[in-house]
Design a protein around this nucleic acid. Structure first.
Lengths: 145, 145
DNA sequence: TAAATAAAAGATTAAAAACTCTTTTAATAT
DNA sequence: ATATTAAAAGAGTTTTTAATCTTTTATTTA
């Protein structure tokens, strides 16, 4: 059980891959993305179609088509991907799974978890999709395995 | 998708409930625990059996039997419950789901996630199972809904 | 405008997690 | 000893998540 669902992990890795591959203005096909991040191709296709519908990635059909990211998309925070796929439960949900846990009806770990959830949210909100392209060019980081 | 699996959420809430209910030295039955924390009874039974086998909770069969916590168990950190049920993936796993993500082969968010995962671990390691009994007596906190 | 390309959409299957039911075993009290 | 109580254990079901397959639609190039 990771921090995000498997779907969301593929989504983030896929979007990073697209950002990196299309930094020069081109397009990248689903096959290349799936291979590049080590995900099942048809499953990733579904995920990217969803993100495309939501405007988080861009795509065109036909020859020379594929996925890419416009200026605006590159500036979006990672939080927008996570919220689109997993919802905002990770930012707001109770650590012990209680629906009505809140400031006035807190679970035993309410304050401790609130602190951590806020940190996760801040991290994902302040980090933009585009900002890792440099690292990846240097081969420092990995999106596969 | 919460921080922990549903199973783990029930486990933590169940153990808190046992700690609270048996603080005076008694035992508490699975039915009362399940009702008290709002979980499916047979499913919670499975979970507590597992924790019992691992020595994280104590139990006796027969009349006046039920679950309880000995001195040692009350002092254990919450981390021991989480590790028993969900494993240590939440403390060590890669945020993007990469098996081989590490210091020398980091994913784009490796350092950021490491920081957060350490915080989660520290919180769960420094917090003991028994230390919320007082709060619960005051009716400040909830384990249900 | 026809052929080729590549994503979109819909339907289906597989695997994992969550949950239930039935039988057995251990402990206690009479 | 026997009946009763309550957890342990095992097998089975349901639901959710993950993954696959097939058909359709849009775009481009020749």
């Amino acid at each position: 059980m990771g921090m995000f669902s498997k779907t969301c992990e593929y989504a983030i890795r896929g979007v990073f891959f697209i950002a990196h591959k299309t930094a020069d203005g081109g397009r990248v096909g689903i096959k290349e993305i799936a291979t590049g991040i080590g995900s099942p191709e048809p499953f990733l296709a579904k995920i990217l179609q969803d993100l495309s519908r939501r405007g988080i990635v861009q795509s065109t059909k036909g020859p020379n088509g594929g996925f890419y990211l416009n200026e605006e998309s590159l500036k979006r925070p990672l939080a927008s991907i996570v919220e689109a796929i997993d919802g905002n439960g990770i930012f707001t949900g109770c650590g012990l799974g209680l629906k009505q846990c809140s400031e006035i009806n807190p679970c035993p770990l309410h304050n401790e978890f609130k602190y951590i959830r806020n940190q996760i949210h801040d991290l994902l909100a302040k980090t933009s999709i585009g900002e890792f392209n440099g690292d990846m060019n240097l081969g420092i980081i990995s999106l596969k395995r």
